[in-house]
């Protein structure tokens, strides 16, 4: 009887749900870029801790803005890249995440320069 049943086949990437739908190469790309974005978040935390350690309770509003921005920017950009590239093929994901990493770099440098401008010239 079981001879007539179709052979069980493994679902294709598009039939799977969640991260399993991304395929092996897509997952590798997501994880590799997550490490880079994660490093930026960790550096943001390191900046936050060193500022709190050095200045204690004297961290002003604009400085908090920079410190939290340095943590939030990579995390938010990574989330947006993940959403944007969810249905793209692996090469599209790589392009989006690479573009996102350059955006994180530009935004971080802009954030620092804006704060420096406010502190020293504003």
């Amino acid at each position: 009887m079981s001879e007539n049943l179709p052979a069980p086949t493994s679902p294709t990437p598009s039939e799977r749900s969640g991260f399993a739908s991304q395929g092996r190469l897509g997952l590798i790309i997501i994880i590799a870029f997550a490490l880079g974005y994660g490093y930026a978040v960790v550096r943001g935390f390191a900046l936050l801790f060193s500022n709190v350690q050095n200045f204690g309770g004297d961290v002003s509003g604009i400085r908090w803005f920079v410190l939290i921005g340095a943590i939030a920017v990579p995390a938010v950009v990574f989330g947006l890249c993940l959403l944007t590239s969810w249905r793209l093929p692996a090469w599209g994901k790589a392009v989006v995440f690479l573009c996102g990493s350059t955006v994180v770099a530009a935004l971080t440098l802009s954030l620092y320069s804006l704060v420096a401008f406010v502190f020293f010239q504003g």
Binding site: L88, G92, V95, V96, L98, C99, S101, T102, V103, V104, A105, A106, T108, L109
Partner: peptide, 19 residues
């Protein structure tokens, strides 16, 4: 980070046109 910032504008342009 500096290198990536320089590459950001052309990369965004290329990615936007490509995708």
């Amino acid at each position: 980070v500096q290198f990536l910032a320089v590459a950001s504008a052309p990369l965004w342009l290329a990615a936007a046109l490509l995708l």
